[in-house]
Design a protein around this nucleic acid. Structure first.
Length: 570
RNA sequence: GGCGCGGUAGCUCAGUUGGUUAGAGCGAUCGACUCAUAAUCGAUAGGUCGGGAGUUCAAGUCUCCCCCACGCCA
């Protein structure tokens, strides 16, 4: 039995994610986790909310709530929606957990002991009215170059000139609008990633099977310009993990917190601790420590392309630098973006379809199937309502759903609601079994390789094979002169439904369960031999005719949704 | 402006280390069937593989130049 540690990039806390976010990491990660579990492998699938940083504070302020309370509420909302989409996390944690506080401080301490942390003095703008330091993008003013009056502290959007906050004319806080600002000298910690550059480079070079998208991004950061830059890992904020050196105070760092990008990936590890504590003390180190049983673990990360640098460089630098035997990622699967109707999905602009809205329209399986079968793997891909309607109607309703209908309804009308007996498989059935054998092998190879679109394509072909068989066997004709043969043909059809239920479960868990339930089969094992699998349900076994598994999306629905989601979310 | 990823049938996309008549699904057209959610099955049509030059016995697949779209950065 293999052991798979699987993590999805952790979604930020400030709001409900859109479908682009979903297909960019959580959904393919879930597909892989479900596949590995179905095959009988041991899986620990972890995800969490990323809760620290200025955007969380601002979102909380906008909602009129203390930030801790806001995060707790939004975490519950995201957890509920994730559940609605069937995302099968073993634990959905929080980067603000006590476990992550301890672990983040631990890593910082180890890195400092290893000489990989440097202290740097910086000048930052402090807002007296807001009672806090303002990062560059939270300072606005008039551009000295073009007189644009909404230039940000780091750059003028109008003339693209780079700026320092002190360059701005009449600078003001973007949060409160206050002009009561002053420049203060403040000390910060930097992670000396540059010292680990060669180690990281060698590590990346050892990953021959990673997608080009992944390695090319990592290589660019390693070698571009002056090479990998050191990175500030602390901030002058209230909300976050207090800067401590292990369990000791860190002189000079009082009142500061770690930067969100330092503590967020550490949550992958801390989340296992949260999981263990929720399981009444399960052993989490056997998943994460190679000296404590994680040697045979295969660790796979899923993420959008924008997250690649942090997962290939910053986080590995943290782990390597600690000098401790933590599990490093084995395979890193990254995704491009899903676009919405000619533009981008946008959380800040409310453009596109958000996860909660999607579930109001249709069950999760519809979205899961379409998104996964159109997954943006090699390049950005496009969501349009027309493509969505076509894909769902054809693949789910016509090919799979209708197959289940025609088999079960034909059997009910001719033989009753029990698997009919009589006849035995002949050449046509042997040919189907041989075909399915090859297709299932390809399907599994594609799933193992995390080739999401190709897996979906093969699964669809497996569904279609059932219709092809039925069309050729034509039990509705056979039954006129040979009842036994017709019974055998429809018995095979019913067995195919069972096979489809288990094979499809990583993609469409809901419909898979409906199929299994209709057959009265609680637990169908993953097929190791197709011939055995299609003889699993014996004559006499009772079944029921399920409601149509998938309703078609009408042109009226599509037009209505298209109009409803054309604007921005209010 | 620099860098990155792409530009393959009407649409969405596959095309390993260069090698027989460039593939799939959808859509279209025609036919078959009638058990089924007017579903299914079969067949056909459709591409000078963004443009140009080069290397090679042979290039969608390598090299160079150019054009276009998108993204990142300064």
């Amino acid at each position: 039995m293999q052991r798979h540690l699987i993590t999805s990039a952790i979604p930020y806390i400030n709001g409900i994610k859109h479908l682009g976010n979903l297909i960019g990491s959580q959904l393919p990660a879930d597909l892989y986790a479900r596949f590995q579990r179905a095959r009988g492998n041991e899986v620990l699938f972890l995800c969490a909310t990323d809760e620290h940083g200025t955007p969380a504070e601002l979102a909380a302020a906008k909602a009129g709530k203390p930030v801790a309370e806001y995060c707790a509420e939004m975490h519950a909302v995201q957890a509920r929606i994730a559940d609605g989409f069937g995302l099968s996390f073993d634990h959905f944690g929080r980067s603000s957990s006590p476990q992550n506080h301890t672990l983040t401080q631990h890593f910082a301490g180890r890195l400092a002991d290893a000489g990989l942390i440097s202290e740097v003095s910086e000048k930052q703008v402090y807002s007296n009215a807001d009672g806090r330091y303002l990062p560059d993008r939270y300072i606005e003013g008039t551009c000295p170059n073009c007189a644009y009056d909404k230039a940000r502290g780091d750059q003028c959007e109008n003339c693209t000139k780079q700026l320092d906050p002190t360059d701005l004319i009449e600078p003001r806080s973007a949060i409160s609008g206050s002009t009561d600002l002053e420049v203060r000298e403040t000390k910060h910690l930097y992670l000396r990633q540059s010292a680990l550059k060669d180690d990281l480079d060698a590590w990346i070079d050892s990953k021959k099977d990673w997608p080009v998208l992944t390695t090319s991004i990592a290589k660019k950061w390693l070698h571009d310009g002056d090479g990998l830059q050191d990175r500030g890992i602390t901030r002058d904020l209230d909300w976050g993990i207090p800067v401590r050196r292990g369990d000791a105070d860190w002189p000079g760092m009082e009142g500061k917190v770690f930067y969100v990008w330092f503590d967020a990936p550490i949550e992958y590890i801390a989340c296992a601790g949260e999981w263990a504590d929720a399981q009444d003390g399960a052993n989490w180190e056997r998943w994460w420590r190679t000296d404590k049983g994680a040697d045979d673990v295969r660790y796979t990360q899923f993420m959008g392309k924008d997250n690649v640098p942090f997962h290939t460089l910053s986080f590995p630098a943290t782990i390597l630098g600690s000098g401790e035997p933590w599990k490093m990622v084995d395979h890193l699967k990254s995704f491009n973006y899903l676009n919405y109707d000619g533009g981008q999905f946008s959380t800040s602009q409310g453009r596109g379809i958000f996860m909660d809205q999607a579930l109001e329209l249709l069950p999760a399986d519809y979205w899961r199937w379409w998104l996964l079968s159109n997954c943006p793997e090699t390049s950005d891909s496009e969501f349009t309502w027309e493509l969505f309607q076509q894909g769902v109607n054809k693949d789910l309703a016509d090919v799979l759903g209708n197959f289940v209908s025609r088999v079960t309804k034909f059997c009910r009308s001719k033989f009753g609601e029990a698997v009919p007996s009589g006849g035995s498989y002949g050449p046509r059935e042997d040919a189907l079994i041989a075909d399915l054998d090859a297709r299932v092998a390809r399907y599994m190879a594609m799933m193992e390789a995390m080739e999401v679109r190709k897996s979906a394509q093969e699964l669809r072909a497996i569904w279609a094979a059932g219709n092809e068989y039925l069309q050729a066997a034509a039990p509705w004709s056979t039954i006129k002169e040979d009842t036994d043969t017709a019974a055998m043909q429809i018995r095979l059809g019913l067995n195919l439904i069972g096979l489809y239920a288990v094979l499809s479960s990583p993609f469409i868990p809901g419909a898979s369960k409906q199929m299994a339930d209709a057959l009265g089969m609680a637990d169908i094992p993953w097929p190791s031999d197709i011939r055995i699998a299609v003889e699993a349900i014996d004559a006499g076994h009772e079944f029921s005719v399920p409601e149509n598994l998938f309703a078609k999306i009408s042109d009226e629905d599509r037009a209505g949704w298209e109009a409803r989601f054309a604007g921005i979310r209010s």
